[in-house]
Design a protein around this nucleic acid. Structure first.
Lengths: 219, 219
DNA sequence: TGGCGATTCAAATTTGCATTTGACTGAGCA
DNA sequence: TGCTCAGTCAAATGCAAATTTGAATCGCCA
């Protein structure tokens, strides 16, 4: 890791790391500064010293997690721009799922919590960081579905894909929330699940597409 | 509505109704007893009198919502037991989506919040109430996927379907959380979305099934 | 009518947390 | 050696929200 100059930077860094982990695990409200500081081996007052308040720590922690994950998960999944569109979509889905499944990737887990219990604190950041990715996804879907696809069909297919991806987060979360109980689902083989979502979704998209085409003939 | 005998039952009922709505909207932590009592036109102390504490109110409110929805949304979606299995699965998915979309159905919205921010308070109830429905779903999926489908494939398909259904809740939630901003998705036509999920999912399931069959030939 | 258990109420108490304070530490430097 | 200043610390403060209390009220029935 990049070695840091002063002791304060080390503490600040530990705070950000612990905060992103705990915010991802419990959400903004349920996370306490005391807990974060304890896990970061820092004093309670260090949050105030380094960040001013809990809200700023939240924002900075998300940014910290997000930047940390940048590059590690290219949005295109490493698939060439020249590849067929379904392959590019597949790469994108796989990359997203791997990122969501990564126990050290907190930015999406925080978003997940934020969507369930909006604090509105991240709203601006999300708009700026997530919307571009969303638009790229829409572009791929438009290609897959054909030019006759309606805006609604695009949105629905997007929802179908994202819903499956986030379901993974939900199941992960539930598992870690109750260690003793029998697991409702085994999501340990992420690669297999990612492939499943790709196969399932591409089949779904082709079905929607083939519904759309006949309309053209009828018209 | 069923007329209630005593005034206390009325207050108790108003508390349960208000509580289930507010817990569904904000989750356990973010809901305050003061808010619930205000909306139920009851005194702060009435929660303590009727339920003892906030946790018990939470449990009772979920039960109240769940019972209230019983019958309104038959799990089979009104499709005959003799219908082809894909049709029965379709009915089930549609029924689930309509229920999730219903602004007056709180039990699933509370579950949704509970999954994102587990309080563990509902764990036992959920196990008892939800697992049967889950098992029925697995039965249908097993039929659709064929006898050669693995347990993992079943779980993955289940996750794909439930993920899409819950995505609707997520989007609804986000919409009501930020009134002014441009909507990320238009989910106003629930019937259309329900049909989309059915078409998308059945196509996905058939694709998984056709992957499975060849294994048998190879063997 | 008067008494009594069931409810309701406003006000007090307690709790859990974020935030603030002011004293302490230690490294760098003249 | 003594000054400065970024960081650290334990303890105090403040506040919002849950919980408790005890007095007031209601509805019913002897």
């Amino acid at each position: 890791m990049t070695d840091l100059k002063t002791k304060s930077e080390k503490t600040r860094d530990r705070l950000l790391t612990a905060a992103s982990r705990i915010f991802a695990e419990k959400g903004y409200q349920d996370s306490t500064i005391a807990d974060i500081c304890e896990q970061a081996q820092a004093n309670i007052a260090s949050v105030n010293y380094h960040f001013g308040d809990k809200q700023t720590l939240y924002l900075e922690a998300w940014r910290h997690a997000f930047n940390h994950e940048l590059g590690q998960y290219p949005p295109d999944g490493g698939v060439s721009q020249q590849a067929p569109v379904e392959q590019r979509l597949a790469g994108r889905i796989q990359s997203l799922i791997r990122r969501l499944a990564d126990d050290d990737s907190y930015s999406f887990a925080i978003i997940h919590k934020e969507m369930a219990q909006p604090t509105r604190l991240l709203a601006d950041i999300l708009e700026k960081e997530i919307n571009p990715q969303r638009q790229q996804m829409f572009g791929l879907l438009r290609e897959c579905l054909g030019q006759d696809a309606s805006e609604q069909q695009l949105q629905y297919c997007h929802a179908s894909i994202m819903g499956q991806c986030f379901q993974l987060l939900r199941l992960k979360q539930m598992q870690q929330a109750r260690p003793q109980r029998a697991l409702p689902s085994d999501m340990s083989d992420i690669g297999a699940f990612a492939e499943h979502v790709v196969d399932f979704s591409l089949a779904g998209i082709r079905a929607i597409r083939s519904q759309t085409l006949p309309k053209r003939i009828q018209a």
